[in-house]
Nucleic acid binder design. Structure first.
Lengths: 337, 337
DNA sequence: CATACGCTTTGGATCGTTCCAATTCCAGTC
DNA sequence: GACTGGAATTGGAACGATCCAAAGCGTATG
């Protein structure tokens, strides 16, 4: 088993000093082109691979960004993570993605592991729950840390927060359903007590209040399964309800499947709007109306804000809300449309 | 801006030498419990964080595994990656996940980046296409590399391969559809010419040949959108077809949505079986029959094989096929069932 | 009281890179 | 031919951990 070649081996092979090799590696323009060529040839010949650990030891590490996601199985978050990775890759930054699986303890472990591995910044969509000291540990490192999509720590001066303007989206959805003739709009999904549930309900609630309409809300896990179950509940216990805003598209798709199973397909007699506008929303039957969050664009903005912070030292504003857009499709417009 | 504390600072604070601190970090049992306590207290007080780069420099790096996935947006692969990460985390290994986005060049860059960051092993579900020298580069490093789910490099002695026994699954699905009374079974989805498409078709083809039945196959991207389009094609051009085996569940769900849109819901007059048994299969309407690949179990097995290789030096067998299971649901049994 | 023996602890060398100050090189000038 | 100045190159120190051989310490043994 031969050991991995180092810049010393490259230097010997190319007949220069290790310092010169280092300069070539850093793309310095003060080495003569011929020397550079020779060094590069030597590297190729002996199969040299850069040892970033050694480099990071000497100079403050740059170039590795940690992305920690509460639930990577949710396509919305997957899309965010992969878009962010691509945006950062375009700028020459490597990314490590990890999945906390909604487990605050695992999340704390992963944060520790990322810091140990020398990430120079962190983007985190936190898991809810008791995370003793995770954010204190982060604060102590002084690393740039961005909270996105969810907020665990209120110190947004330390950990700036960015998300979407869900409240306005929710209001848009409610107005749209009223325009389509709905009179009894339920809210379905979302765990009670969470900030994001409050936000996604707030616009709906205000519109209903303004119109003097009654509020029906069913809370639960944000899954397809809960959506199906909610369909049964609505049909049995709230027959007057003729439309629903769902916490997210997964719930909405489950709800539509539930109505289909009961022989009452969604579209004309019952209208549905979801949240997130995942890819599948445009491909379901009927096509699902949804409050569209441009997650890829959001990921690009996040990358830009993070880089401005890392490179220019320009601290982002503590709280940012990206605008959302209502995409009306057959599930709220009716199947003839 | 204060610099990050080192073991020297901890040592000074605890009144011991740096070597002792190092022993504590490594959990050596030859330090006196009281000394350990003192060191741990000192670490907590000054907020010490371990610098893994420095450690890896001295001792051959252990504990970081790279996971490179061709398409992380596909829930099947997301499930694999996250399950693998959790299985490895349970053994104390950190994992970095990256998404090659079906781009061989990006894949080559990511492989390079992972090696630079000192991963001690790699699990890769490769993107198809020209990847000049990516695997040669890997071979030179001598790292343990496992190919999973897809095979790019035929040198399975160097890069052992593991996947599912799709051929048998495909045969099971075809037999099942015949048992349900179908006579004209189409195969839908999968890009032509790819090994995985051949595998997932082969069992179907053999069964049809044995029964002397005609083969209809529609190839295309493995997406919902293609499934919907395929539904139209089948209805228009192949009205005799009364069942379909789909390349994966996404295509099957799209196909079902397409039939629903055409007013011909799947279940009794037309039967469908998919591949992968993703979570959504059990939650669609009608529920989707699927060739179930126990991806979480597969991920656990992969972790075990990888660790045996890394730790014991026990090279895995070059090719492994995990068994699959047909899960029959309403989409093939009929909606009354 | 000297010796031996575990159990703990320790100083120095080391890993592969970058940074810095110093040196060499080379053409141009007086 | 000596001197100058900028460009190119170089050797040594440094980064923060681990590893190793050796030393310290307290107790049991002869």
């Amino acid at each position: 088993m031969k050991r991995r070649p180092t810049i010393m081996d490259v230097a010997a092979r190319a007949g220069v000093s290790k310092s010169t090799v280092s300069l070539v590696l850093q793309g310095s323009k003060q080495v003569r082109p011929e020397t550079r060529k020779a060094v590069e040839a030597a590297m190729a010949e002996i199969g040299y691979v850069y040892n970033r650990a050694a480099a990071n030891l000497r100079s403050a590490s740059v170039g590795l960004v940690g992305v920690l996601i509460n639930d990577l199985r949710n396509p919305f978050f997957t899309e965010f993570a992969t878009s962010l990775q691509m945006a950062l890759a375009a700028e020459g930054y490597a990314t490590v993605i990890a999945n906390a699986d909604e487990d605050p303890e695992l999340q704390a472990k992963l944060v520790g592991s990322m810091i140990e591995h020398g990430v120079s910044a962190l983007v985190i969509s936190p898991a809810y729950g008791e995370a003793p000291g995770t954010f204190d540990q982060l604060a102590r490192t002084g690393l740039p840390v961005l909270q996105v999509l969810r907020k665990m720590d209120e110190r947004t001066d330390l950990f700036p927060f960015a998300s979407f303007d869900y409240a306005t989206g929710s209001a848009k959805a409610a107005r749209h359903l009223l325009d389509q003739g709905a009179r009894h709009i339920a809210f379905v999904g979302g765990l009670p007590g969470r900030a994001i549930t409050r936000e996604r309900k707030s616009g709906w609630r205000e519109v209903l209040k303004a119109e003097g309409l009654e509020e029906v809300a069913l809370h639960g896990k944000s899954s397809r399964a809960f959506g199906m179950q909610a369909a049964e509940t609505l049909i049995a216990d709230h027959p007057e309800v003729d439309a629903a805003i769902c916490f997210n598209d997964l719930v909405a798709l489950g709800l539509m499947a539930g109505f289909a199973r009961a022989g009452r397909p969604v579209g004309d007699a019952f209208r549905v709007v979801g949240f997130d506008d995942i890819e599948e929303a445009a491909q379901s039957w009927p096509q699902l109306s949804s409050v569209s969050c441009d997650i890829a664009g959001f990921a690009r903005d996040t990358a830009a804000r993070l880089l401005a912070w890392m490179v220019e030292g320009e601290r982002p504003e503590p709280e940012l809300r990206s605008p959302v857009r209502l995409v009306a499709r057959a599930s709220s417009l009716g199947t003839d449309a």
